[in-house]
């Protein structure tokens, strides 16, 4: 078997207990949610925490709620399967439901959580490998080594954010609620709510700004504009299981006259941070969905995306081909969103 390294397992029943464990063990402890990313990574000896703290028994972290303000609040431990099939999510944030429905395979969606997906480690073909493999390679910057094999001679890790829900949540303007250990002497919960855009940094080694020992407790999605439409497009080799080779989330706000009033596109599986495609509103706003002008604006947006998105050799497969698919997937996904359809996926 591909054995796990030895660790101690803690299964706190409350958030406070969990936070206390992180306060106690510091960087020796790691949270585990569904484990579908952490367990393979530990088996590959990418992480060898002394203590693994399971969040699974903390009931408060699970569930999907619509607040009176029309906000969606999704507990970090809510499974991807639940996110994908929730009618509240499908109605209010279709792009998220679609992205979640295309993650991995059915069993992994039953196990994997939304919080775990947001917090997913970056991926790279030179990194997500067994210990033996990486030893034979001589390791790389991200773990145990000094060189990058993607940008040869480069001094920075460009491992790819590969979490499908990240771009979806970004187009939705989601915020993330983190809770950290309460500092000694304080009694108030150590809460931090940040825009998801503020989570990312352009470093493949750790692509998130987080505080020591803090836990992502919930994902909040503000009420969207009245004519909100969204869709997710995912390029991958197989019809299931595979991580994205390119992913794009689209938000279109459409007025009653079918004219676009706002738009956003986010891309993933390129470099360390998922990113917005810039200057697209200039092209799209004011265009009537379904018109020829809209179609040509979509074409221009696809070109913008092509210019801004440069897949690298961090993922397996042909980076040139992935780049070529950027405008195709962006265009198809925009059209799908406009039509209230999606996801865009080859099967």
């Amino acid at each position: 078997m591909l054995r796990l390294p030895k660790f101690e397992l803690e299964e706190p029943a409350t958030l406070d207990e969990a936070l206390a464990l992180f306060a106690e063990h510091g960087s020796d402890a790691m949270p585990i949610a569904g484990g579908t990313d952490l367990v393979p990574n530990m088996k590959h000896r990418l992480f060898e925490p002394k203590v693994v703290v399971s969040l699974a028994r903390i009931e408060a972290l699970t569930g999907i709620r619509v607040t009176s303000g029309g906000e969606l609040e999704i507990g970090a431990m809510t499974t991807l399967a639940d996110v994908a099939r929730s009618s509240a999510v499908q109605e209010r944030a279709p792009v998220l439901a679609q992205a979640a429905s295309l993650i991995a395979g059915p069993q992994l969606r039953t196990m994997g959580t939304l919080g775990g997906n947001v917090m997913l480690d970056t991926r790279c073909q030179w990194y997500n490998q067994t210990h033996f493999w990486r030893t034979s390679l001589g390791y790389c910057l991200k773990k145990d080594g000094t060189e990058c094999h993607v940008v040869q001679g480069g001094g920075k890790c460009v491992a790819a954010a590969s979490n499908d829900t990240a771009p979806a949540l970004m187009t939705l303007g989601a915020t993330l609620v983190f809770q950290g250990p309460t500092p000694p002497g304080e009694s108030k919960a150590n809460l931090r709510e940040i825009a998801i855009d503020a989570l990312w940094k352009a470093d493949g080694i750790v692509n998130k700004h987080t505080e020591p020992g803090e836990i992502l407790t919930a994902i909040r999605i503000p009420a969207q504009a009245a004519g909100h439409r969204g869709a997710y497009g995912k390029l991958r080799d197989r019809g299931s299981i595979d991580f994205p080779l390119f992913g794009c989330a689209v938000r279109l706000d459409v007025g009653t006259d079918e004219a676009v009033t706002g738009a956003d596109i986010c891309a993933v599986a390129l470099v360390a941070r998922p990113s917005h495609v810039k200057r697209i509103e200039d092209e799209l706003v004011g265009q009537r969905v379904g018109s020829d002008d809209f179609a040509s604006a979509v074409g221009r947006v696809a070109e913008l995306a092509y210019k801004q998105c440069r897949p690298m050799d961090n993922s397996p497969g042909d980076a040139d081909y992935r780049r070529e698919m950027v405008p195709v997937y962006v265009r198809r996904t925009l059209h799908a969103a406009a039509q209230g359809a999606g996801p865009v996926h080859h099967v």
Binding site: G105, Q125, D237, R238, G239, S240, I241, D242, P316, V347
Partner: peptide
């Protein structure tokens, strides 16, 4: 994962 064997949908 990296050796892409088709699933039933493929």
């Amino acid at each position: 994962l990296d050796y892409r064997m088709p699933l039933s949908i493929d």
